[in-house]
Design a binder for these strands. Structure first.
Lengths: 225, 225
DNA sequence: ATTCGCATTGAACAAGTGTTTAGCGTATGA
DNA sequence: TCATACGCTAAACACTTGTTCAATGCGAAT
């Protein structure tokens, strides 16, 4: 997908170097000088091409996230998610930089991160709608909230990949990277929960329902002195 | 729990100011000068008390995380989780700074963040064991992995709280804060999934099982040229 | 009362930061 | 052929960063 060699514009080379470094170090720790040296150019040239460090970041945001989000929205047919994951499992190295960058964008508050998260939620929502029609997904009252929960659970792997790897003893090729083996090990437990549930009976669900209703009632009273 | 006024040691006041700022801005963006001014002291005094910025961070780590992790491990009887959440719902403002700090620690790579994550996993594991014995939680083959998944899903709320609030339109009192209303809105969807599942039949689970076995077989071959 | 120790400050330092500027070379179009 | 524009660099600038240091004040111990 990405041209590996230096057949790129200098501008593009700088941008790619920045994407890598921003993902690895975070926006504030990554310096213009480091980006420049990584791209094999002078610091001045970075500014010349992007106006400022913030401008460079915007260019990176647009290149990684806008693209990824659009991509995800286009292939929003539910079957493609499996294909997408399969694609990642087959050649994960190609996506590591993008993934690291997205992780940083979701953590930092940035418009690009917001857009990406919203795109994921929208995709989940579409999948749920289609799944309910097809009868493969249970009917939910509040589809929107369920979509957000599913998105949150899914992106957790991205945000906490480092800890998941560490905790399960799955070696990660690089810090914060998500090894294919990690995904493989997490798939079945997650799908078991998603299929048969985690609790064995509706006790907790009912208890929570009651507690929430009671809490709502209390809330009404709390606002009076 | 925390003394609100200035009846604290100067050292403690600096540390608390740092915890707040580190949580809000992140470790690298928060400057020694900003911490000092927030605590109403000179920058030199910060260094005098903690040796260096890294030393200050270590002190904060120890105060917030080590404490929290230990606390969690001690009250590891499964019922206490509900009480802990209830406690948070009743007075959330008291914990916002700690939560922000923990979020930063989990995102940044730090020993303190590692310890916290491990503590959460361990607590999940204990809960699952106890729950299985009591018959409230389904029997799982790979309890360890399930614990990691549950921990990951739970901490996702912490890591992505900002996006969850935004996406659901629940106003958050401060950026990256987790409003009680948000938790309330997420509880039922999550518990529904955890109780009745997300998929309506084991189709996806079985498909994944087959795909993984096939993939494993392929993996064996892939290592040969 | 004097000395000691410690909390505390203000100013300074050295390194690193993003950014500016002047100038170099080279290709392109007139 | 010349001029123009542009990619690009080296050096410098202004500022922020973490940290140091000498000096001050103050409370407690002798």
């Amino acid at each position: 997908m990405r041209s590996t060699a230096d057949d790129l514009t200098t501008r593009a080379r700088i941008r790619d170097a920045a994407i890598g470094l921003f993902g690895r170090e975070g926006f504030s720790r990554a310096t213009v000088r480091a980006v420049a040296s990584l791209a094999g150019v002078s610091p001045g040239l970075v500014i010349h091409h992007f106006g400022s460090k913030a401008g460079l970041r915007e260019a990176c945001d647009q290149h990684v996230l806008a693209q990824t989000a659009t991509q995800g929205r286009e292939k929003a047919d539910p079957g493609s998610t499996g294909r997408l994951i399969q694609d990642y499992l087959n050649n994960p190295d190609q996506y590591t930089e993008e993934i690291a960058y997205i992780r940083r964008s979701l953590g930092d508050e940035s418009d690009a991160g917001d857009a990406f998260f919203d795109a994921v939620v929208k995709q989940c929502q579409d999948i749920i709608h289609t799944g309910i029609e097809a009868g493969t997904i249970r009917k939910f009252d509040d589809i929107r909230s369920v979509a957000v929960v599913i998105a949150s659970n899914s992106l957790a792997v991205l945000m906490l990949g480092r800890h998941l790897s560490r905790s399960l003893g799955v070696p990660a090729p690089e810090p914060n990277g998500i090894a294919p083996d990690l995904l493989r090990q997490l798939t079945l437990p997650l799908l078991e929960i998603y299929t048969h549930g985690f609790y064995s009976d509706p006790r907790f669900l009912n208890a929570a329902r009651e507690a929430l209703e009671e809490n709502n009632a209390n809330n009404g009273r709390e606002h009076a002195p």
